[in-house]
Structures are given as structure tokens and as C-alpha cells.
């Protein structure tokens, strides 16, 4: 099959029969977000399996890529077929990016796994659209678990991790990570904490800080969800460079999935994920329409009035929105 001339249906078919080129190409189309991306969504949504989506986040230098590499190897040994979406920021100036996650997982990327580097490509809203689409492609191609790896900065990136079935937050000694994570709201979304570089001085302190924060959350009830289910995230000590503690992380991630399934929370989480995507897509569609409407004569006229007369900006906005919604 020529990957460059194949139709979308052929690509999806090939992706499901293990052709990584087809998976790679579908991800590109999803990332570009054109009409073809919508088509890919339509084709792959019915093919979704039951992939376990794992979000992993941590500050640059926390060793999360090395950890992910180790997890891949561990999952493969247990007969799973994992995939990774490694997300890195684009240059705000040129729009280009240097994506170095593969090299950090190097030597441990086992055969049969799939790693895709993804740049944020400027506006973060795009990421919120591209990631669910990419996960859907990987799911349809039969990969599970699917890891979404991000640098823990930026609300959209936090949201992306939070939308996973299992959210893993990686902290390290000496970087004030616990505090940073708290600021970014990562502590609230974490289902599992990994203290990486556990062989370093200060690792025990990080663990203690995290325990304290979890205790506090328990006192305030912040760790109990709407349906009253209590789950205290584990804190696991890991040295990813040597692989020490990685098996426990694999177990911990599996345990969390079991908890979700047993408590019935898995379906809720996935429903929430679909809801979030639908909202993002609707938001994007509306925004695009708004951009379009802003060019219209009526909008120009309303703007003109707001600038030059006593017609208030509030009224001008209402007028433009009415054009879109038809109210």
C-alpha cells in the first residue's frame, strides 16, 4: 500500500492490522485538524476499544521520559501493546519545535510500542482538540495503555492529563516540585505520585511533603469525589535510570484502573472525557464562526457604532452573537 495515496478507510484498515506507517499518517491528519481530521474521528470513534489512558506529567528534568521508557518495557514484558503521545511546546517565535522525547526514552523503546512526538503548535486550544483525536486513533489501532506525556505547565496540558483514566504526577527531590505541582493544580488531579530520583538526598522529604498534602486534602474532603468514593493516591519511590521501583508503578497504575472499574468511576471518567472533548470542539467551532462573523458588515457596523457613538460594547457584542445564534 502506498501510504501517501491511500484513502482514509484504507489507512484506518492498515492501522488496525499493525501498519505503523498508517498510524503515523492518521496522527498527522488529526494533528493538522483539517476536514480530514473530522473524517478520521468519524471513522475511528466506532472502533474505540477499551484502552487504558494514562496521563503522565512532571517538570522538565524530572525524568518522566525515562520513566515512560521504562514503563513501556515493563508493559511489553506483561504482554501489553503500549503507545505514547509525547507533547512538547512549539517555539512561540517560529512555530517550529525540537522534539526530544524519543531520545530520552532511547535504548528502552521496545519493539511493538509506538511513540509519537507532538508539538503544541502555538495556541493551546489546538492541543485540546488534537489529543483526544490522536488517542482515538491509537485506541482504534489496538494500543493500550496509551500514555499522554506532558510538561506540567499550562492549564490545557493539566486538563489533558486530568482527562486520562489515570493521572500520574512525577516529582523529584530538590526542585520544589511539590509546591509547583500544588500551584498548577496537579495535586488535585493526581491518581498516583511518583517520586523519581529516589536515590537522591531529599527524596524522603518530597514524599513527606506529598503525604502531608494528601492528609490535608483528606481532612478537607477534597480527595472524596462527588459520589463519595474515597481514593488516596499512592506515592511510589522510583529511580527510573536504573529501573528501581518501576514494577511498582506499573502495578500502581493497574491498581488504579481496578479501583475505577470496581467503583464504577471508569464510565464516569470516560463520559467526562467525551463531554470535555465535545465542549472543546463546540467551543472551537463557535470561535471559528465568531471569527467569520466579525468580518461581516453587520459586525463592522456594530463595532463602528461602539467606537464612535454611545452604543455600548455590551450591546455591540450581543448584536454580533445574535447573528451567529439567530436568537
Amino acid at each position: 500500500m502506498n501510504i501517501r495515496t491511500a484513502s482514509l478507510t484504507e489507512l484506518v484498515e492498515a492501522a488496525r492490522s499493525g501498519d505503523n506507517r498508517a498510524v503515523g499518517r492518521l496522527l498527522t491528519l488529526v494533528e493538522r485538524g483539517s476536514a480530514a481530521a473530522e473524517e478520521v474521528a468519524a471513522l475511528t470513534h466506532p472502533l474505540r476499544g477499551n484502552a487504558h489512558v494514562v496521563g503522565i506529567t512532571g517538570a522538565p528534568g524530572s525524568g518522566k521520559s525515562t520513566l515512560v521508557g521504562r514503563l513501556l518495557a515493563g508493559w511489553c514484558q506483561r504482554g501489553l501493546r503500549p503507545a505514547v503521545l509525547a507533547i512538547d511546546p512549539s517555539s512561540p517565535i517560529s512555530g517550529g519545535a525540537i522534539l526530544g522525547d524519543r531520545i530520552r526514552m532511547d535504548d528502552v523503546i521496545p519493539e511493538g510500542t509506538f511513540v509519537r512526538s507532538m508539538a503544541t503548535r502555538g495556541h493551546q486550544g489546538g492541543l485540546a482538540l488534537a489529543v483526544p483525536g490522536a488517542v482515538r486513533v491509537l485506541d482504534a489501532a489496538g494500543f493500550s495503555p496509551i500514555v499522554i506525556e506532558t510538561v506540567g505547565v499550562g492549564q490545557v496540558e493539566v486538563d489533558v492529563v486530568a482527562a486520562a483514566d489515570t493521572a500520574v504526577v512525577v516529582a523529584t527531590p530538590g526542585m520544589g516540585d511539590a509546591v509547583q505541582a500544588n500551584k498548577a493544580g496537579l495535586l488535585e488531579v493526581a491518581d498516583l505520585f511518583v517520586v523519581n530520583k529516589a536515590d537522591r538526598p531529599g527524596a524522603a522529604d518530597v514524599r513527606r511533603d506529598l503525604e502531608l498534602m494528601l492528609d490535608l486534602a483528606h481532612v478537607t474532603g477534597a480527595d472524596t469525589d462527588d459520589s463519595g468514593v474515597y481514593f488516596r493516591p499512592q506515592i511510589l519511590m522510583v529511580t527510573a535510570t536504573t529501573g528501581t521501583g518501576v514494577a511498582e508503578v506499573i502495578d500502581g497504575i493497574a491498581d488504579h484502573l481496578k479501583h475505577l472499574t470496581a467503583s464504577g468511576r471508569l464510565a464516569d471518567r470516560r463520559a467526562h472525557r467525551v463531554k470535555a472533548e465535545v465542549r472543546s470542539r463546540a467551543h472551537a467551532a463557535l470561535e471559528q464562526q465568531l471569527r467569520h462573523s466579525m468580518q461581516s458588515d453587520a459586525a463592522t457596523a456594530a463595532l463602528e457604532k461602539a467606537i464612535n457613538s454611545n452604543f455600548s460594547p455590551v450591546d455591540a457584542a450581543r448584536k454580533i452573537v445574535q447573528k451567529i445564534t439567530g436568537d
Binding site: T28, I98, L99, D106, S117, A119
Partner: peptide
Amino acid sequence: EVIFLGLRQTTSSIVAAVEQED
């Protein structure tokens, strides 16, 4: 967008990257 593989790659590791990264 540069997918940086860096040092000590083999033709097969590069092929795998080209496939997956399109």
C-alpha cells in the same frame, strides 16, 4: 518540527521513528 534522535542510532531505529512520527 524536528524529531531529534541524536547519537548512536541504527537504520532500524530511524526507520521506526520515521514511521511513527510520519
